[in-house]
Nucleic acid binder design. Structure first.
Length: 611
RNA sequence: GCUCACAUAGCUCAGGCGGUAGAGCACUUCCUUGGUAAGGAAGAGGUCAUCGGUUCAAAUCCGAUUGUGAGCACCA
């Protein structure tokens, strides 16, 4: 039966699927052995294995994994056959009652009522019985005993709803054989080395200080270089596309956000208001509330509204790397990926309905240019639509069904016309309109929305934005919200993981480090550094008192893209020896030639040094 | 916010079944002037997250708090 559960794979029911699914039953059997009275939730196969949810009388922790695995292996060894049985509705429900499985019962009931099923399928292997659609292996002997590994235990809400019981979810990896498992685990552990939190610390990119506050990263000099370079790139691309830059304050009166519709629904996501007393000209004292802005849109809208606009000014594209603050749940905050204070590559494009398609195409083209400069390929697009059937829909989405449908059609048509691959996701829209999100995987395989393009058909009207059309009448503009470079926080997190901390020269905090063979060449090296810095290259002199090996080790550990080694030979011929990150062969060339190639590498934002 | 785990030097970690701590790296100083991933020596650095409880005695045991991690929920 279709387990409608996040994490489920919709793969062909192949052999590996059966193995994983069957292992879930074996795991459940072992858990029931160890924790009498445990009840069952869902236990589906997932991308790299399977999980099973339980309500346990006594918690299971990591310390129990070895015993759990031992018991699972023992079960596999027994060669239990998997028997399927299809029972008519009434009998099936009676059996589930007998099993004493309240969660299975709830789901069974729902399957019968909502999906109109007349019978339910059960699988039995050994003493373990589960309501389950299958398919499974024939016998537990078909499952390799050394190709699974219990990975972690975590809490998970029954049916993914936080109003329900928190169950215990046990995750495990499972593959067709030990080689595949080992390879996967090794790759996984290798990927963890790229974790932006780990590299962010090692490479001095950012730090988080408890006295500043959770989710409020401090950007160190190295990280600030990366931000500045990204911002510079964004500025150039946006300038070329006709954007104008604006700058707005970090706070605004609370009332503004009531008008846009963000409040009261999003109060939980905002820092509470700052209340101040202000004196009016009559001497009265009036209370005024200000909030930290959770997005830049209202401020930009007010810039749009600051003068009478003609259709001739449209599309009007206002851009700002703007700081916003969101009071994210404590459990969601982590590293740079989810923060409470962030700087967003924001822009709002005000346009007529006829201009929407062109503007979207331009924005997507800008994404394309930006990502190809950075060499990003791992992302996919998601068309995020509203969910008309959401029971909370009235609170979640602007109540204009026709506008929703027509604007979704516009976005879908653009994606199709540009021949872009995308997935469609219900219930992921912004409250004011549909969006196209750019989804990236993190090192651990979790998916995050990095960038977004959104069509807003609601807020301009609420804020009474208007322009005078060719007909001389007032019209409400459409607004496109877009953030190709996301927030600095999330984007840099992603870039750290993408590059494994080894940034291309143009983006690297230190672009060139000059190392001397001995201190007697320090003056020559310093001269090189000075000359490069005069050309705005981020060059520095390596430590002067260590051995050459040590200096190279240090430069390499810091993942500096270009190390220049100078000794007697180089000084005499006015040369430098270039050692690029990750490449053992070196190139000796005249310093003037190096400088020229370096400039070209930086100016073209090349991913590799242009030799 | 929820479940579970964790919190020892700037970093990475060891140790501690109750008697106030240790390594490597980094740092400082000295020696070494070395051609491709750690030259050598010395020194400094911690009331073992915070608060409370038990105890003759707590860094170790218990509780709370705070923070961190994984997952879930959330994610304009």
């Amino acid at each position: 039966m279709p387990f409608e559960h996040s994490g489920e794979i919709d793969a062909a029911r192949d052999e590996l699927y059966r193995i994983r699914h069957s292992l879930a039953h074996v795991l459940a059997q072992a858990v029931l052995e160890m924790r009498e009275g445990a009840t069952l939730g869902f236990g589906p196969p997932i991308q790299d294995g399977f999980y099973y949810d339980f309500v346990l009388p006594e918690p299971i922790t990591e310390a129990d994994f070895p015993e759990l695995e031992r018991r699972m292996r023992r079960i596999l060894k027994k060669g239990q056959r998997f028997y399927q049985e299809e029972l008519p509705k009434a009998e099936a429900l009676a059996r589930i009652d007998e099993m004493g499985e309240p969660y299975k019962r709830e789901y069974a009931q729902e399957l019968c009522e909502k999906n109109g099923l007349e019978s339910l399928s059960f699988y039995r292997n050994g003493p373990f019985l589960d309501m389950c659609e299958g398919p499974h292996v024939d016998t537990s002997k078909d499952i390799p005993r050394d190709a699974f590994k219990i990975r972690s235990v975590a809490g998970a809400y029954w049916r993914g709803d936080s109003r329900n019981t928190m169950m215990t979810r046990i995750y495990a990896w499972a593959f067709e054989d030990k080689t595949a498992l080992d390879a996967y685990v090794e790759a996984y552990e290798l990927a963890l080395e790229r974790d932006h939190k780990k590299l962010g610390k090692e490479l001095d990119i950012f730090t988080i200080d408890n006295e500043i506050g959770r989710g409020l990263p401090l950007w160190l000099p190295n990280g600030t270089v990366i931000r500045d370079e990204l911002e510079k790139l964004a500025r150039e691309l946006e300038f070329a596309d006709g954007y104008q830059r604006v700058a707005t304050p970090h706070i605004a009166k609370q009332d503004l956000f009531y008008r846009t519709g963000h409040l009261p629904y999003y109060a939980d996501d905002m820092y509470p208001p700052i209340e101040v007393l202000e004196q009016t000209e009559h001497g009265d004292v009036v209370k005024e509330a200000y909030v930290l802005k959770p997005m830049n849109c209202p401020h930009h809208h007010k810039i749009f509204a600051s003068s009478l606009r003609s259709y001739r000014e449209l599309p009007l594209r206002l851009a700002e790397y703007g700081h916003v603050y969101r009071f994210e749940d404590s459990g969601a905050v982590g590293g740079l990926l989810r923060v409470r204070g962030m700087c967003m590559n924001d822009a709002h494009i005000y346009c007529t309905e006829e201009q929407i398609a062109d503007e979207f195409r331009n924005v997507i083209s800008l994404y394309d240019r930006a990502y190809s400069i950075l060499g990003l390929k791992e992302y996919f697009l998601r068309l995020s639509c509203w969910d008309p059937e959401d029971p909370q829909g009235k609170n979640k989405y602007v109540d204009e069904p026709e506008a929703w449908e027509s604007s979704q059609v516009i976005l879908r048509n653009i994606l199709n016309e540009l021949n872009l691959d995308y997935v469609e996701a219900k219930g992921e829209a912004a409250f004011y309109g549909p969006k196209i999100d750019v989804q990236f995987p993190t090192v651990t395989g979790r998916e995050e929305s990095v960038s977004t393009v959104q069509l807003d058909f609601a807020i301009p009207k609420r804020l009474d934005l208007k322009y005078i059309g060719p007909d001389g009448d007032e019209h409400v503009p459409y607004c496109i919200h877009r953030a190709p470079f996301s927030t600095h926080e999330r984007f840099v997190a992603y870039l750290i993981e993408h590059f494994g901390g080894a940034f291309p020269t143009w983006l690297a905090p230190v672009q060139v480090q000059v190392l001397t063979v001995s201190e007697q060449f320090d003056a020559y090296a310093q001269g090189i550094v000075n000359e490069l810095r005069a050309d705005f290259v981020r060059a520095e002199l390596g430590s002067t008192s260590d051995t050459v090996s040590k200096k190279i080790r240090e430069g390499t550990t810091r993942k500096i893209p270009n190390l220049l080694i100078v000794g007697e030979r180089e000084v005499e011929a006015k040369e430098v020896t270039l050692r690029r990150y990750g490449i053992r062969e070196q190139t000796t060339m005249p310093f003037a030639a190096f400088k020229e190639k370096l400039r070209a590498t930086i100016n073209t934002r090349a991913l590799e040094f242009v030799l």
